[in-house]
Amino acid sequence: MSNDKKTKEWGNISGSYYVKKNIWDITFKICRGILLFGLCFLILQPLLDKLSISFMSWEDLYDGTVISIPRNFTLANYSQVSSLMNYWASLFQTLLIVLGSSVLQIAACTLAGYGFARFKFPLKNFWFLCVMLIIIVPPQTIMSSLYLNFRFFDVFGIVRLITGKPVNLLNNVLGLFLLSMTGMGLKSGLYIFMLRQYFRGMPKELEEAAWVDGCGRFKTFIQIMLPDAMPMLTSCFLFSFVWQWTDSFYSTLFLSSYRMLSKGLGGLAERYAQWYAQVYVASGTGGVSNFAPVAQTQMMLATGMLMCLIPLILLYLVAQKAFVESLSQTGIKM
């Protein structure tokens, strides 16, 4: 009883401060919830469509009364796409290649980004302009020259000196690794720029303290700057991984003899048409046309796309943990 009275008194004195604050907080949370729900729905909706299509059987696809929940739930699409794309083998190979190449790429870009952020040297602005240049020039425009460059690969005649003739690095994963290692891989310029901005934004005092304590430049970079930059490194790595996973440009240039998921997905429609021709048209049960029905091809494509997406989402969930953990490690700053 007396407690209630006291609360009322306090309320009168403070002008109902806590009540107002609570109401404000709750309204804010509701608005935020609605907003996030809407935006998430906006992004997820096309994918949910694909998800529902991927579980449908053929009858559902042509049934006008089936909207989003399949009537005849089936996993047949998944098993078929898996055999058409040779899913597990290519998943493994893609994983190895993309992982290796993105680690190399991020390593090179981190070094360059740190170099641009912290050191003064002659021609710095010129080299940075070159970084901007490789951000802006899309690979397609220099594709033909790049192709020739790697067909007869030779750095300033050195290779010719050793082996007698230039090497063919096309259709060879080494070519891709070489590009990533030297910071020329897919969108490398962007990572260099991101990391440079990030390192520039970090306080200099830590490095100076390390310097005073007798830590060399490279050791400072490895032991002090890198742990602090973990969130940014993780996001760069994620981008690099995702972009190379879905990339079709470098994989046609270097990896045409490898089984890549992106290539499998790109050729899925064609392969489905072949399969359809073999199974139905050849046996005379294919109906009117010689081509696989568009709707079924799209169903396969939707399924294949989801199967390419799933590993990336899993990776993101793992990497997100690294986000949070790296955050707790970098407690002391300034």
Binding site: A112, G115, K120, I134, L179, T182
Partner: peptide
């Protein structure tokens, strides 16, 4: 410092000069 800067940039410079 300038030398260290160039060393950090080395991979990028090699890549740029020889590939791009």
């Amino acid at each position: 410092n300038a030398v260290a800067g160039y060393l950090f940039l080395l991979p990028f410079l090699i890549g740029f000069l020889s590939f791009m």
